[in-house]
Design a protein around this nucleic acid. Structure first.
Length: 106
DNA sequence: GCCATGGCTAGTA
DNA sequence: GCCATGGCTAGTA
């Protein structure tokens, strides 16, 4: 078996994403060296033990749609709106501009 | 065998 | 819309 994705590594990345920025499941997967693990990232987020400090709602789909959320998409959308993101249905018009560059985060 | 994804085809309008 | 993917859980034998 090969090396496995660590949930704590995923959460460590998430806490560095500022308000008003978002990332994708795939971007996180690639940063951790598991380019095909985007679906697995979603499963890990679904398990988020601490939604208060780990902003899972800032992870969206690579096609600019909102993606899932343990407490429902409606809740996720509200949180993102509060942080300045705009919506057209489930689409995020400024997805590209708000997409964080994970490599440059500290 | 399920799923909080994503990339790729086929082929409609 | 299909299906490979990776981590997880249920629950068979």
């Amino acid at each position: 078996m090969h090396k496995q994705l660590k949930a704590s590594d995923v959460y460590d990345i998430l806490v560095r994403i500022p308000e008003g920025k978002i990332t994708t499941y795939g971007d996180i997967a690639r940063l951790l060296g598991h380019p095909r693990a985007s679906r697995a990232i979603g499963r890990i987020l679904n398990n988020n033990p601490n939604p208060i400090v780990v902003p899972c709602h800032r992870v969206v789909m690579s096609n600019g749609k909102i993606g899932g959320y343990a407490f429902g998409k409606a809740r996720k959308k509200e949180l993102l709106k509060k942080e300045g993101l705009r919506f057209r249905g489930d689409e995020m018009p400024d997805f590209a501009e708000c997409r964080a560059n994970l490599a440059k985060l500290r």
